[in-house]
Design a binder for these strands. Sequence first.
DNA 1: AAAAAGTACTATGCTTAACATAGTACATGG
DNA 2: CCATGTACTATGTTAAGCATAGTACTTTTT
Lengths: 122, 122
Amino acid sequence: MTKETSKSAAQMRKGVLELCILRILRGGEAYTSDIIDALKAVDLLVVEGTIYPLLTRMKNAGTLTYRWVESPSGPPRKYYDMTDRGRALLEELEATWNQFVDSVNSLESHMDTTAKNAPLKS
Amino acid sequence: MTKETSKSAAQMRKGVLELCILRILRGGEAYTSDIIDALKAVDLLVVEGTIYPLLTRMKNAGTLTYRWVESPSGPPRKYYDMTDRGRALLEELEATWNQFVDSVNSLESHMDTTAKNAPLKS
DNA sequence: AAAAAGTACTATGCTTAACATAGTACATGG
DNA sequence: CCATGTACTATGTTAAGCATAGTACTTTTT
């Protein structure tokens, strides 16, 4: 992947991380490292620094809650879970995402949309 | 669509507009209003102000060229076309896009990834 | 018991692309 | 000749991912 496309990839990630987190949490509560690992596994995250503030934003927005759970090794963990508001948002984001993908892919086929206005070659 | 999801939609658009423009131009040269209309038709663009600077960026990056064409009504138009570099970038962005969609959608199914680390309920 | 290492979370600033809005220039029509 | 419409340009704002550094707590090591 070139420098140019990796920049595009970073931009594409914007806006879907929230959806991805909600999708992960649909399977049950998880703590930050679990979420990070799941996202990294599918190359949707580069660094931890991105996810911590996002989880805080989502918690403040009322889409997530967390509870402290003692860890077998290390400091206690925040286990996150969806709220009802989060479940509603997930549904909306699913619809938005599917629409979005359809829109982008629709540009693959009908390339005559612009042809009707094409000028004569000089 | 709520205020929250429309924000997400705006974020999702980031990074794919370049790909979309290249997809549109694959069908042949087009001028800015053609491109804007095509993008608006599939809800991938809100305002013109976004696309003009983007086309300039892409021209400066060497992925696009343009030629002036007299208009039947109004000022002359910039007709854009892909360069060889643009065609190469298009291929890369196609791959990046497909990978990206697969990644996001892969989070739909295996929701047991995190379950193995799930704590006991208190 | 003190030092070292590892884990989990927090805080600050940067970059970039979409958005918003206003403004300029040119051509046609009344 | 002025009004209207079309095409392009310019400037500033916002927001999310990225980069990096730092704090706090726990377990392990010597």
